[in-house]
Design a protein around this nucleic acid. Structure first.
Length: 425
DNA sequence: TCTGGGGTCCTAGGACCC
DNA sequence: TCTGGGGTCCTAGGACCC
């Protein structure tokens, strides 16, 4: 048996934990740059506020119903997530952290317990330890556990816990689940399936396997097998190292200057390097992109991107930043109204395995790599102690292009200064 | 005025190897 | 007259996830 524990309206719930006055108000959380709605409390959903809707389009509605609106506060959500995961890890022997607000638990060794009761215990414990409400779905495969979780969320009579164990329970759940609500079936595949009159999860389970394999390939075949109770997706207890790391942002305003783009790209490159070092990894490929707004009809559209290999795998901020600047020069077009930029590092190898193979063509060997490594270690240590950004490269600067973040709540769990400010208010 | 960010996996086709 | 069989690696594009 697998359990899927999924936090309810996670970002909105995080905001509520430290601000009890919000408990009776609808709450929404915005994407970066305060652009779109990416989380909604139940009350906000009931008002008809759609997921992914641009904030400016539902502003009247938000105002009319006195919805509490927040910028995303990833310092808070990330920390609350790790509290939830630590609580779960203490309850169940094996846990797979699937996303910021979800985890699979291996329930195999719990067969002799009443699973519904155990699900309730999980809910109570997480709520008590973190203040975050969760729902629990249990079933013999991950895909079915997802379906169980969804039912637990949608139907109050489950009281947050839905266990699908018997064949009859599973069949009934499949019949109640639309094909587009199955984990792994997105918009495109839903269309393909609906055209074939496959409308419910039960229909997909019963569809001819060869047809599924042909049109939905191996991934679809796996989903079908999982619906039929054959587990194809095992627990992944150790998160594999990332294959690529991306840092990108939309700008708070239009940027036309190369110099301002350089500052943005430098900042993103620096962040990528920090993330790489956190993963104990080195990157061998670097991508830089700059883009105009896809929505602004009045400006010329442009998407400039370039990928190049680094002379040797590195996580050194200076090396990555310098390479990124050179690539930016290559894709910059004057006279464009830029709205977004980003840096991606890929070709990632673990730091430990890398015995620094020198480039045949590099003009110089990595300048005393052990020294560079030490500088980065010191930088990371200072930033860990005094807050990220305490020391940074001079080229990193977010003054001009900084995304909007006008309704940011306090970083209640990671910044003393923020708590003091809250008290003073 | 105003529209997010960060990932993964799979397939097909081309270039190449012996 | 007639032209094999078995691979790998890389990339682009398309699908999906939260």
């Amino acid at each position: 048996m697998f359990a899927l524990v999924d936090c309810n309206n996670f970002y909105a719930s995080c905001e509520r934990v430290f601000n009890p006055a919000l408990r009776l108000r609808p709450v929404v959380v915005l994407s970066n740059n305060d652009g779109c709605i990416i989380a909604r409390s139940e009350e906000a959903k009931a008002l008809g506020i759609q997921m992914g809707m641009p904030e400016f389009k539902c502003r009247p509605l938000l105002k009319q119903h006195e919805v509490a609106v927040f910028s995303s506060n990833y310092a808070l959500y990330g920390d609350m997530s790790s509290r939830v995961m630590m609580t779960l890890a203490a309850i169940a022997p094996e846990i797979e952290v699937y996303s910021i607000d979800e985890a699979f638990l291996d329930m195999t060794s719990f067969a002799r317990f009443d699973l519904t009761e155990y699900g309730r215990l999980i809910r109570r414990t997480v709520r008590q330890h973190t203040g975050i409400p969760v729902c629990v779905g249990m079933a013999p495969t991950k895909t079915l556990a997802k379906i169980a979780n969804r039912l637990a969320k949608k139907n109050p009579h489950y009281q947050g816990v839905c266990v699908l164990a018997s064949h009859a329970e599973i069949q009934a759940a499949l019949e109640r689940t639309k094909v587009e609500d199955i984990w792994g079936i997105g918009r495109q595949w839903s269309k393909v399936l609906q055209a074939k009159r496959i409308e419910s999860a039960a229909d997909l389970a019963a569809a001819p396997a060869a047809w599924v394999q042909k049109h939905l390939h191996i991934v679809g075949a796996r989903i079908q097998a999982e619906l039929l109770g054959k587990s194809c997706l095992p627990m992944e207890l150790v998160r594999p190292a990332k294959q690529s790391i991306c840092t990108s942002r939309s700008f708070g305003r239009i940027v036309t200057d190369l110099e301002e783009l350089q500052q943005a790209v430098a900042t993103f490159a620096g962040k990528c390097a920090v993330k790489l070092r956190k993963e104990n990894s080195l990157a061998s490929l670097l991508t830089v992109f700059i883009a105009t707004s896809p929505f602004d009809e009045s400006c010329k559209r442009y998407w400039g991107t370039r990928t190049a290999s680094l002379p040797y795998p590195t996580s050194d901020s200076v090396a990555i930043l310098q390479a990124a600047q050179t690539m930016l020069d290559g894709i910059f077009r004057a006279g464009m109204s830029y709205k977004k930029a980003g840096v991606i590092v890929s070709g990632i190898v673990p730091q430990a395995s890398c015995s620094t193979t020198l480039s045949l063509f590099a003009e110089e060997a990595p300048a005393a790599p052990e020294r560079d490594g030490r500088i980065m270690q010191v930088m990371d240590a200072i930033n860990k102690r005094y807050g990220s950004g305490a020391v940074r490269l001079a080229a990193e600067n977010s003054e001009s292009w900084k995304p909007h973040q006008e309704r940011l709540s306090a970083r209640y769990t990671t910044q003393w200064d923020d708590i003091i400010e809250v008290k003073l208010k």
